[in-house]
Design a protein around this nucleic acid. Structure first.
Lengths: 160, 160
DNA sequence: TCATGATCATTACAAATGAAATGAATGTCA
DNA sequence: TGACATTCATTTCATTTGTAATGATCATGA
């Protein structure tokens, strides 16, 4: 009876549950475009971001899309080879790239959007309004709490 | 104004949001044990499962812990090298392994549990009761919906 | 102006990953 | 019993991944 207190049930453990549901959703989602368009999850994120952001650099994408900088660089290169993305050097700063969707990139994007939206709508339709609203707040609050932890760590190891 | 309808805001897209929060939480969590005990996320999952399940095979762990079978096999091998896990062959079926935590494995587990529980409690304390309850239902309902999709796919491509 | 440091994208390299193949053990059924 | 298929764990191999350089460009300040 005191032994139980020292045990941790993985099935009820929040980090594990989040990882499992996120992996399942990502996997199910990627089935919609992976085979049909030959696009990875990282590449889809890049495309989706480009569609909403005009011409941006690798660094911009990296900062906005929660992907490693190297991963973005490679995803953009593959997309360029596939003809979905155009690279140009930034006139004002030659270190930067101006990355945009090509016509074909837009075309692919427009084909994926209804699939993605439909998939999401299907998931969300399983929830009622209060659950959707609560989930919204959960995202915000968890991020806020994680931000606090980052801040706390920063104050422990300042200015490295 | 009709253009907007075809756009998809990644920041509001459920699969993306789940992936981001799960990755952040997993990362923050793994910091607690990765460096200190030299254990990966997969290895932590194996240990946590062994602590609650007595002697089990690779296949059992694979089925219960949402990890690739090969990944489990490798995680168990590394844990055995590190002395945290014991491998024995199953008396009734020589294809199976009986995998258990060693004394040191238990020791490591007991050290990690309070860290993990504390981390989780810290996250959950950011939420109120209704949000925690809603999150619980969200997990259930999303899994149920994804199960339905699997069933639907199975009926499209039967008995392959 | 020009030396030093910062920033950006890419490359190099080692480690991790996953799909398919392998080998050993068991189940099945004529 | 014995051929054949299945199951389990591991290995193989090609690909992906992330960390740490690299090279190129820009910013800063003496």
């Amino acid at each position: 009876m005191d032994d139980q207190a020292d045990l941790l049930d993985l099935d009820c453990f929040l980090p594990y549950r989040l990882a499992v549901i996120a992996a399942r959703v990502s996997k199910a989602m990627s089935v919609l475009y992976a085979e049909k368009f030959g696009i990875s999850i990282a590449e889809w994120r890049v495309i989706a971001h480009l569609a909403g952001s005009g011409r941006v650099s690798i660094r911009d994408i990296h900062a906005r899309v929660n992907l490693d900088k190297v991963k973005v660089s490679r995803a953009v290169s593959r997309l360029e080879e596939a003809g979905l993305v155009l690279k140009a050097s930034n006139a004002a700063d030659n270190r930067l790239l101006d990355i945009t969707l090509s016509d074909e990139g837009w075309s692919v994007y427009r084909q994926i959007v209804p699939l993605a939206s439909g998939f999401e709508a299907d998931l969300l339709s399983a929830l009622d309004d209060t659950e959707r609203a609560a989930l919204e707040r959960v995202f915000e609050k968890l991020h806020a709490r994680l931000d606090e932890n980052v801040e706390a760590a920063r104050s422990l190891y300042p200015k490295v």
